[in-house]
Design a binder for these strands. Structure first.
Lengths: 324, 324
DNA sequence: CCTGTCATG
DNA sequence: CATGTCAGG
């Protein structure tokens, strides 16, 4: 094939200058896939240049696998407030979006994606305008899985909550965990969902390491939200939800990348309610995560919360990995 | 009582300067009803000063009874786009609003009306957020009627479409005639409504002259809309609706004040669709009317369409009457 | 196209 | 409080 070329899809506003920068960082020829050549699978074409990086920032810049996760709270509203330019300058390789709240065709149009040549995948809700996840990839995944098997005929929120891309070295699981809703009226369903999702991840992990990216609708620890004591009975911080998340992490030995790197950091949130100017006062929750199989620990370069980037009540987060 | 005073309610932004101007025009003392004195009934306190008026504009300015009609297409949205200041500077005595789409308390709050002393009346729809009419009066009506009697147990659109104020010399009937809706699916109901409404007006007219003010949801003549030929099968310009309106006017000998004064005027509309910039191109319909009993013909001073005043897809219209 | 409702977050 | 739907105009 093209061992020194790094062919990637150009969409959602990735510019020629962006690719130029990427080419320098990765010391490869980077080209947009403008012709109809097949997009290569991940990583064989991305030799690590990490050894040359001096600073922590430089390490992030040369990292050869980056996953962006963002709950955009409605793509069409998002596109009226923001563009992809700002976040795309950080050159993610895989983009995981949650709550697109949109149908397929509109998604592609809204993102400026060329349907014929792009690697854009989405899983929409049966009920219109709800949930919806999308996975956009600059490389062609080996396989894409829509949803996951539910037990005992359960279907609640099964659709439009999970989409999984299989690459050569790992699965990227884009998850939007169902909200327990007001008065916790969906708590039971949510916990049942968690059980099945855990089983799905376990299944995947028997084959390859997994990266779970997305809005897990749960703050793990007291330091993961501004008002822990106030919120023990609110969706996202009940004993049951936290226990369920801990259970998943324990059973699969998953690493919460942000807490792994910054175990004590406080005030680090990814979601702020729209009400009462919570964001400007940094009254928030950490609901968005990268959970990694232990096998990927050595590849971790870093993680960033882009708290100043707007357009949604969640901020985008990026995982920086490097494979030698 | 106070034969030389003109006591009127001060609400919805009628300012002291506005009242000053009114006092000069009407040659009376005009005062806001700030104390708890009863608001007098109409007209005995408003001696005509029409004889002193030179120009047509001056005649309108000194006219001693003015009725404003405005379909505001949702009061709460309206209040975000406009205030009452502009239209209030024209000093209406009675204000007829259609499509308030709001509940009573909110109405009063939104208008800055003092519940205790005001003459504000409204008739709301049983189904929330639909229709709704309000009648605001600077003088105390003798009586207020809500809705009108329907025949044979008909109830469709009976609520929130008509409110009537009885004054010493006339009834002011604030009407929001039901729309025939897409595909004319409500046409039959609308025509049945028209029949009952006609009966109601006939009944009133046996007692006193009537002023029907409001959105009659019908363009009378070919010159009352930009594209008459295109719209023969569209709600508001079907043969049946036009015939029904003509029938009402004939049977009751009602005068369409605007056409009475400007029989040939074209391009005179009161409604423009929100779609495709219709208003800026003056592609519109005349749907809002003042229909007057013949007995009031001699009192007519004029009528105005305030086409430049925004905040709704309908413009406000004002009837100027003068009683000697 | 723009107003309301309502369910979800 | 903000984003969707849907019915109404």
């Amino acid at each position: 094939e093209h061992p020194h070329k790094h062919r990637r899809l150009a969409f959602i506003d990735e510019s020629a200058e962006d690719r130029e920068r990427l080419a320098q960082d990765r010391r490869v020829e980077v080209e947009a896939n403008v012709d109809e050549a097949p997009i290569p699978h991940l990583l064989p074409l991305c030799p690590s240049t990490l050894a040359t990086a001096q600073s922590q920032e430089a390490k992030l810049r040369v990292s050869n696998f980056r996953v962006l996760s963002w709950n955009i709270a409605g793509l069409s509203a998002f596109l009226q407030k923001n563009t992809w330019r700002e976040i795309n300058a950080y050159l993610p390789d895989v983009i995981c979006l949650q709550e697109t709240k949109i149908q397929s065709n509109e998604l592609l149009e809204g993102l400026g994606v060329d349907v014929g040549t792009s690697c854009a995948y989405w899983h929409q809700s049966v009920v219109k305008g709800h949930a919806g996840v999308a996975l956009l990839s600059k490389f062609k995944p080996i396989n894409v899985l829509y949803g996951f098997p539910r037990s005992n005929g359960r279907t609640f929120s099964e659709k439009g909550h999970v989409i999984t891309a299989e690459y050569d070295r790992m699965f990227v699981v884009n998850a939007y965990v169902p909200n327990s809703s007001m008065k916790l009226k969906n708590l039971e369903e949510r916990l049942a969902w968690d059980v099945d999702f855990r089983g799905f991840l376990a299944e995947l992990q028997t084959r390859k390491p997994v990266i779970v990216a997305g809005d897990l609708n749960c703050a793990r620890l007291d330091i993961d939200l501004t008002y822990p004591t106030k919120n023990h009975k609110n969706p996202g911080f009940t004993e049951q939800e936290r226990h369920s998340l801990a259970h998943t992490m324990d059973e699969l030995r998953l690493i919460d990348v942000y807490r792994h790197i910054y175990p004590e950091e406080t005030g680090a949130y990814t979601f702020w309610s729209n009400r009462s100017n919570a964001r400007s006062k940094n009254i928030g929750w950490r609901l968005d995560y990268f959970l990694l199989s232990t096998a990927l620990r050595e590849s971790i370069c870093g993680v960033k919360h882009f708290t100043t980037i707007g357009g949604s009540d969640h901020c985008p987060i990026m995982l920086y990995l490097n494979f030698p």
